[in-house]
């Protein structure tokens, strides 16, 4: 049991526990915080899977960006309503059953597969600088999707700003 493996199971356990807690969370705010925990744990797992750049992006964009926005949203909605947001549950039994069945089906499907053990490849992959390669790839092979996502981001930004703006009757 080496250190990376301990870290790996620690992060896995953290994500799984936070996910279970999310299922039973009755406050949206706590739910958002639990999602942050999951996202950070996932970022740790990404590092362990030799995807440092994705991990950093995960932390920056998700934990630092989206979740902050979502928490702002939660606070805004609770400010508008004036009472804390308590989440009711609908279809708890059937929803849970469907989720469990889904999980079971996926686990069964995964267990059927055999993958090459990553021990052999792990040693070679530590030798190259992932971030630099990702940067070069983004600017060469993946430049078209990169630019396209830039446009998509711009559109989402403008759209979100327009939709969330207060003067609803103003002509756009």
């Amino acid at each position: 049991m080496n250190a990376p493996l301990i870290l790996f199971y620690f992060f896995e356990a953290a994500a799984a526990i936070a996910a279970v807690a999310l299922l039973f969370a009755r406050s949206v705010f706590y739910g958002a915080l639990l999602v942050i925990v999951i996202l950070l744990a996932l970022a740790g797992l990404y590092v362990l899977a030799f995807a440092e750049f994705v991990a950093v992006t995960q932390i920056l964009v998700y934990a630092g960006g989206i979740l902050v926005v979502i928490i702002f949203g939660i606070m805004l909605t609770s400010r508008l309503s004036g009472k804390p947001l308590v989440v009711e549950h609908t279809l708890p039994v059937s929803g849970g059953l469907v989720g469990l069945a889904f999980f079971g089906a996926l686990v069964y499907a995964i267990a059927l597969q055999t993958f090459p053990t990553s021990e052999s490849v792990a040693k070679t992959s530590t030798t190259f600088d992932a971030t630099q390669t990702v940067g070069i790839a983004l600017m060469s092979d993946y430049v078209l999707p990169f630019e396209t996502t830039g446009i998509l981001l711009l559109m989402a930004l403008i759209g979100a700003a327009v939709m969330a703006s207060d003067n609803a009757s103003k002509k756009i």
Binding site: E12, A15, A16, A19, V20, L22, L23, V28, G31, A32, I38, L45, I70, G73, I74, T77, L85, V87, E88, H89, T90, L91, P92, S94, G95, G96, V98, G99, L100, F102, F103, L106, V107, I110
Partner: peptide, 23 residues
């Protein structure tokens, strides 16, 4: 993959059961 499946199923249950759009 097991964790991915678990998180996915959890997300599905959250979507189905939570009566709040942000959730």
């Amino acid at each position: 993959l097991y964790l991915g499946a678990f998180l996915f199923s959890t997300g599905l249950i959250v979507i189905i059961t939570k009566r709040n759009t942000i959730m």
